[in-house]
Nucleic acid binder design. Structure first.
Lengths: 147, 147
DNA sequence: GTGCGTGCAAATTCTTTGCAATGCA
DNA sequence: TGCATTGCAAAGAATTTGCACGCAC
């Protein structure tokens, strides 16, 4: 999934922050992963291109990059706290339950669902957090393939 | 939120397991909480009615009770791994971002959203994990109240 | 007696914090 | 010089595991 490094660098600069080699490595590691990745996975992957990278930095960077909207946290029934590159718009992630590959989708009309929930609970709904899972096209095609 | 202890006891019995005093305490603690609760919170609450309860047991019990469908895990942007009593039907949770109170809603017509996601990503969607947050009726009414 | 269930303590894993050193502007 | 950024080591928190005892059937 693409990430516009220049744009991110700009966002950071606007806050007086920099896109360092370490941050870049973290960013690339998440961007190149075909699935959502945990801090530890990012650490391993990013180290390959920046061996002196410390785990502390990974945590700090993931936090920072989420904050500025370059990355997004995802959760799921079986994994908490993993990261994916954030698309441009408000979007949701779809995780393949077999290979963990992640895609994003943006057509998301939750109006009706949100309205129904509000009606039923009396809450004023301000945010929704939706995550779908299933089989990606590849896994779906080869459902009978052994792991 | 109500939980049918007899039914749960039955489900456990069918597996050769029992609803012990400790498990009962955990169950009640979650059921009586007005919001989603973390393992540690459950531990504290359940201890009041079962002082000899160990933290280990809480973890094991939460796991077990989720497995048999008596409890449900919830996640959110700012808290991972909390538990709420599971309603009878497939349902979703709505969390109040101010007081953490949780409600469940069951009218959930995700057909359209799921179909759109499938179309856009090529995934075969088998599960959806939706969580809403906002302000519950009480917090919404007193938005200007200090914490 | 058999096996589930338990608490305790220890081990592990994950995450955060403190701090001195580095490096860019 | 000034401040962001870093790695390391230590601290801390959360969770899991090993194990022997207790208890229900």
């Amino acid at each position: 999934m693409a990430l516009d490094a220049d744009h991110i660098a700009g966002t950071l600069a606007a806050r007086g922050l920099r896109l360092t080699r370490q941050r870049r490595a973290v960013l690339d590691a998440v961007a190149e992963a075909s699935s959502s990745v945990s801090p530890l996975q990012v650490f391993d992957a990013a180290r390959e291109r920046c061996p002196e990278l410390g785990l502390t930095t990974v945590y700090r960077t993931l936090e920072l990059l989420s904050e500025i909207g370059a990355l997004r946290r995802v959760h799921g029934p079986d994994h908490c706290e993993a990261f994916v590159p954030a698309g441009a718009a408000h979007g949701h992630t779809v995780v393949c339950s077999r290979c963990r590959r992640v895609m994003e989708f943006t057509e998301c009309d939750m109006q009706a669902v949100v309205a129904a929930a509000a009606r039923q609970t009396g809450y004023r709904i301000t945010e929704h957090f939706l995550q779908l899972s299933g089989l990606c096209a590849a896994c779906n095609a080869g459902t009978d393939v052994h792991e």
